[in-house]
């Protein structure tokens, strides 16, 4: 319960930031940084699985409502939330994560966070972009967009670590 209460404000802030600020940034007139993924990435280690999935669902659904897209962000974000526990287990230290720490640069270092964030964001973009074009016809041009968008989203997410969530 404490996890929910602490994250509810952040949930709203992340959505507003995405809709009001980041949707208006189009780098090179082509790419939009999807900053809202930060919410799932930063959830505490001890978050139970079901809560992670539900949070991903609600987050994706809210973004879908604002972007007038049916279900695409929902599907992508739920998938991203789904792989998170496996990723954390894969990248985790041998004796598990220490109590009272969070998945942030401050605790586990730049390289660890970058690896973790890149794979999370890439998984999300992979689902989102292919659902959007809904065909494999333009496989490579879409794949290029996925890679460039991942780079952009990850940079924004990593930068935010130095500005807002320092600790």
């Amino acid at each position: 319960m404490r996890i929910i209460a602490r994250n509810i404000v952040r949930f709203i802030v992340v959505i507003l930031l995405q809709v009001l600020l980041f949707d208006n940034i189009m780098l090179n007139g082509y790419l939009i940084p999807y900053f809202y993924l930060l919410f799932i990435i930063l959830m505490p280690f001890e978050t139970p699985g079901w809560l992670l999935l539900i949070a991903g669902f609600l987050l994706g659904f809210s973004i879908d409502l604002f972007e007038h897209t049916p279900g695409m962000h929902t599907a992508a974000t739920v998938f991203m939330a789904f792989i998170r526990p496996y990723l954390l287990k894969l990248f985790g230290p041998r004796d598990g994560y220490e109590p009272d720490t969070f998945p942030r640069i401050f605790y586990y270092g730049f390289t660890w966070f970058l690896k973790y964030a890149v794979i999370m964001v890439f998984a999300h973009h992979l689902i989102l972009f292919y659902l959007e074009v809904f065909s494999l016809n333009e496989f490579f041009s879409t794949f290029l967009r996925i890679i460039l968008s991942t780079l952009l989203s990850v940079s924004v997410i990593v930068l935010s670590q130095y500005f807002v969530f320092r600790k």
Binding site: L53, P70, G71, A75, V78, F79, P85
Partner: peptide, 17 residues
């Protein structure tokens, strides 16, 4: 249960889509 919940939510998303 984790996998199950994931599949349920993903199905809802696909239905929306």
């Amino acid at each position: 249960s984790y996998l199950l919940l994931f599949l349920i939510l993903e199905t809802v998303a696909v239905i929306l889509l």
